[in-house]
């Protein structure tokens, strides 16, 4: 190798390492800053008691519960639709105008700003379908928002399965639906779960779409027809209204922890699933 080439290689290596380092630096700075400000706020009382005086005092228990309700509801609703659409696109249809329209629709949906989903959910679920501000309306709105992610990741996962696996199943007398259930979906599961977990994270973190649809009451919800305030919305209101920056950071810190936990859990799950298949 010439001296010049060696120098260029070194420079490129250094440049790439620097970029990686800067990216990590920003990430750790954000997490570190929020942890430093938020971690001291986290006490059992903060986690498990009701807010007092609009959240200036007391805990954030209702927002934790509402967040879990809404995010889980969104996933439970969006997953069957998303995976079903992906199966239809990959297994039950040939490339045609229809599949292209569905795919275009999903991509367009993925690009719609979440506040538009919020407004749409407000008009459709809250007003038209008379659900009022509720966990149900919020969850359904989020389900629409994450649907394209689930569709496209599931589709990719299903497409990645070798065609020969399907042929083996057919050659042994398997019907199409048996093949989908026994070969395609189990093997695509890790990929499908990636999309689902990604969507769960986005649902937990979403503010704009839920503030219009689930409301922002701090009461503890009894059913999914009750309104509620998610952690992200709580954080937004605490910070914007200047109610308590300290508690806003506490909420933000908890939000980050929840999302990290979801990611860690999903990696673990994925690891176990792929190991089972190998």
């Amino acid at each position: 190798m010439t001296c010049r080439a060696l120098i260029i290689q070194r420079l490129v290596w250094f440049g790439l390492a620097l970029l990686t380092f800067l990216t990590l630096l920003v990430l750790f700075f954000i997490i570190g800053y929020i942890s430093a400000k938020g971690a001291p706020v986290i006490t059992p009382e903060f986690l498990f008691s009701l807010p007092v005086r609009m959240g200036k005092e007391g805990g954030i228990l209702p927002t934790i519960i509402v967040t879990l309700y809404i995010a889980l509801l969104a996933i439970v609703v969006a997953t069957p639709f998303g995976v079903g659409t992906a199966v239809y696109l990959t297994e039950y249809s040939r490339e045609s105008a229809l599949t292209r329209i569905i795919r275009f629709g999903a991509d367009a949906l993925a690009g719609v700003p979440s506040i538009i989903f919020g407004l749409f959910g407000f008009i459709l679920f809250v007003i038209r379908l008379k659900m009022g501000w509720s966990i149900l309306a919020g969850g359904l709105t989020l389900a629409m928002m994450v649907l394209p992610t689930i569709i496209r990741t599931s589709e990719e996962a299903i497409r990645a399965i070798p065609y020969q696996f399907r042929e083996v199943s057919y050659s042994l007398g398997g019907t199409k639906s048996q093949t989908v259930w026994r070969v395609v979906l189990p093997n695509a599961l890790p990929g499908i779960l990636t999309g689902v977990i990604l969507s769960l994270g986005r649902s937990v973190a979403e503010t704009a779409a839920v503030i219009f649809t689930a409301g922002s009451t701090l009461r503890l919800p009894r059913t999914i027809l009750d309104p509620g305030r998610t952690m992200a919305v709580h954080f937004y209101i605490l910070a914007r209204e200047g109610l308590s920056m300290e508690r806003a950071y506490g909420t933000a810190f908890l939000l980050i922890i929840v999302i990290l936990l979801i990611n860690a859990f999903s990696y673990l799950l994925m690891f176990r699933l792929t190991r089972r298949l190998k």
Binding site: P162, Q164, F165, E167, V168, S169, Y170, S171, L172, G173, V183, P186, N187, L277, K278
Partner: peptide, 16 residues
Amino acid sequence: RRRVGMIFATPIPLPG
């Protein structure tokens, strides 16, 4: 297909 089985050129074990 149950009556007429087929073995493919490359062995294709299903994951599992």
